[in-house]
Design a protein around this nucleic acid. Structure first.
Length: 274
DNA sequence: CGGGCCACCTGGCGGC
DNA sequence: TGCCGCCAGGTGGCCC
């Protein structure tokens, strides 16, 4: 499910229910997600109050009054539900947080690529140490990309997925942003001009903001925390549209193409994207 | 060091 | 209906 817009949506949906509440009890319905839960996981969380909720790239951060931070990654299929205190777990409900407001937060994750980790210090968490700037923030701009891309031969699509260059972009929004900017996913990053990079950074911001506005993309698993679906999938211009007409050039001779780059599907219009 | 490949895991879908 | 292969929003380890 979750790229930056989906994680942002989930965080914003959980915040009104979770923020300032005490976690009365944590129920682990298995011993691991992607990684085993640390022995003190449950004990540390129980009795703690949530003082802040934030996001870094595709990670959600739940900060506690005791000083620790609960870091949550949704993997490919992780989602949250908000229910009452009498909720009965269903398949793939792995972690339940019972809160002081009698709400229950349920983490469901069929594929279990997601994970939860407790850390004392956010800044030393390895994924954050190597993470690039957030594309919605001020540190992300064309000159930054120009500098980073200078010596790289990687195709731009692959580079956009590299979390140490830019945090939070995944397969959908990489494809969508490149289409909006009219840049071929195959283009080696070295060769992209500063003015094209200006266009690209703006396209990335545009597509992410628009997706957040409508609650992210619901393909299979993603739901907003209140259970409602996101709607951005209806606005995909290339993702998942192999052989369909490009909505920009509408040329019958140049339909949307699907290729594989670094093991992931890339969708693009060979006519509009050069 | 960069880049490619594959594993991790479950489920949905299309083809036969 | 059933089985099989392929595909899926991510990350990270291993190998060259």
């Amino acid at each position: 499910m979750p790229e930056l817009p989906e994680v942002e949506t989930v965080k914003n949906g959980l915040a009104p229910v979770w923020l300032n509440q005490t976690i009365r009890r944590v129920e682990l319905r298995r011993e691991n997600l992607r990684y085993p839960f640390k022995p003190d996981f449950k004990e540390t969380l129980e009795g703690a109050r949530v003082t802040q909720m934030s996001r870094r790239g595709k990670y959600m951060i739940v900060s506690l009054n005791k000083g620790q931070h609960l870091i949550i990654h949704l993997g490919m299929s992780g989602s949250f539900k908000i229910e009452g205190s009498l909720y009965v777990p269903v398949k793939h409900d792995h972690v339940l947080f019972y809160l002081s407001n009698d709400k229950t937060l349920i983490y469901n994750d069929p594929r279990r690529f997601g994970f939860m980790v407790l850390v004392e210090d956010i800044e030393v968490y390895p994924p954050f140490k190597i993470m690039g700037p957030d594309p919605l923030g001020n540190d992300f701009n064309a000159p930054y990309l120009k500098r980073k891309f200078k010596t790289l031969e990687t195709p731009i699509k692959t580079a956009l997925l590299n979390q140490s260059l830019i945090a939070g972009i995944g397969n959908i929004y990489a494809c969508e942003a490149l289409h909006m900017a009219g840049i071929s996913p195959l283009k080696p990053v070295q060769k992209i001009s500063l003015s094209k990079l200006e266009l690209l950074t703006q396209s990335i911001r545009d597509v992410l903001f628009k997706a957040i506005e409508v609650g992210g993309s619901s393909l299979k698993d993603h739901r907003q925390a209140d259970g409602s679906l996101g709607y951005f999938q209806h606005q995909f211009t290339v993702y998942g549209r192999e052989n369909a007409l490009c909505l920009t050039c509408k040329r019958e001779t140049n339909h949307i193409k699907r290729i594989v780059q670094a093991g992931r599907s890339t969708f693009y219009c060979p006519h509009c994207q050069r």
